[in-house]
Write a protein that binds this DNA or RNA. Structure first.
Lengths: 228, 228
DNA sequence: CGCTGCGTTGAGCTTCTTCAACGATCGTGG
DNA sequence: CCACGATCGTTGAAGAAGCTCAACGCAGCG
């Protein structure tokens, strides 16, 4: 079946025997979502977890007055909502397709049965959760210890390091979404980009950002320096 | 051996067979730390994880200019630094004993071997990480979407719910530590406690806080209402 | 008794958000 | 193909929230 091949391409399932891949293929279902469509909402019963096959999925929280904080933006190969499987209970955030996306859905109960019989799958899963925790810890640090310019600088450097340290970044999300990732609002982001431009840290044109002064950005990111 | 009994009392290891408890006892070591003593620092090689047996341990990040953000405060039975085991690499934060504490240390490699052979241990571990992720997601939401009074209100209600919904809370940490948990500074916390007092939300005397207006606090926590 | 750490208070200032307006871009339907 | 609306990004002015710095009281402890 075609699904098995797809499943085997998912990093989470790397190193699994053909036997287990086949079993996974038996419990999985493929789902399509259009741009802007909700996959699940916070508080809904967590019936399973997902893996993005194509497109882009946003995981986010919403406050009473409508502000959103993005927790992740996920692309192909990345799982989400695993927490619902292992912590039981409900989805802890909202999930929405940012573009036309296809996802695989793994129902909770069947998946747990599988994991009980396959330690190497559980080690992969543990690694994913552990990495996510690490990422969240950094977000928490960032949100509470750094000002917005520092968070932006850190984010830009992180992006760059994930793309072979290229100096020219293409934003993969809208600037308003970037603002929400950084825990701020589009207006503030816009002003800070402008300042960073005029002070020679970066050269930003629409959705492309060129890093001009990495050292300066690093100092911004650790709070050693400020934008004036 | 005495250790086996202690290990069996740890929630993380609930439901394990005697056989595995014995194996755990073979790899574990017990360590003592004095008040204020560092257990490990961010960036050190992650050689294993810990479980608090007695005392209190603080997990925190520090910014360049010395501000700290507390990620957890852990008491007896709670594990920490599991991330280092499964994500490999280094400790992602600092750990320090807030009081005289005894902890059990589980070396990474031996523990991974154990988990490879024991699905129920791995499921327990997955549940722990998943719950932690959920908690972090809430912290992130809180830090970026709520103002300090809202965070404080949410925290007080959470504390209360964890203690049979009692209306009289005893702070288990210094106020300056509470401030750091909430992502703010002692001065701001002090001012907000004062306002909450004068407006009848709470009655706070030194380290004891009585909740007077739960409904009002809830509205503060979700941003429906503000302190003036 | 003096010291040290913790908590509180006040004044001033920085940063960020809010609110409002406007320009640009893009996709769609006429 | 153009026009229109919607969305997105930008800019300005004003205000709110929280931080910094400094000072001081108080308690616990050597």
């Amino acid at each position: 079946m075609e699904l098995t091949k797809e499943i085997s391409s998912i990093p989470l399932f790397r190193g699994l025997s053909q036997e287990y891949l086949d079993e996974l293929a038996l419990i999985v279902t493929s789902q399509e979502f259009k741009r802007g469509q909700t996959i699940f909402s916070e508080g809904e019963e967590g019936v399973g977890f997902y893996v993005v096959m194509s497109g882009k999925v946003k995981i986010y929280k919403i406050s009473f007055d409508g502000k959103e904080q993005i927790l992740h933006i996920l692309g192909p190969g990345e799982p989400f909502a695993e927490v619902a499987v292992f912590a039981g209970v409900n989805y802890p955030a909202h999930a929405l397709a940012l573009e036309k996306s296809r996802v695989l859905f793994f129902p909770k109960n069947s998946f747990i049965e599988l994991i009980e019989r396959n330690p190497s799958l559980s080690l992969n899963m543990l690694a994913v959760l552990a990495m996510r925790l690490r990422k969240f810890a950094n977000m928490i640090e960032s949100l509470s210890l750094k000002e917005v310019p520092g968070r932006l600088a850190a984010h830009l450097l992180l992006m760059s390091s994930q793309q072979n340290n290229t100096n020219v970044l293409q934003l993969s999300v809208a600037k308003s979404q970037l603002a929400s990732m950084l825990g701020t609002i589009p207006e503030t982001l816009s002003r800070i980009l402008k300042k960073m431009n005029s002070q020679g840290y970066i050269n930003s044109q629409s959705s492309s950002i060129q890093l001009l002064d990495r050292k300066g950005l690093e100092e911004l990111a650790i709070g050693e320096r400020r934008i004036t």
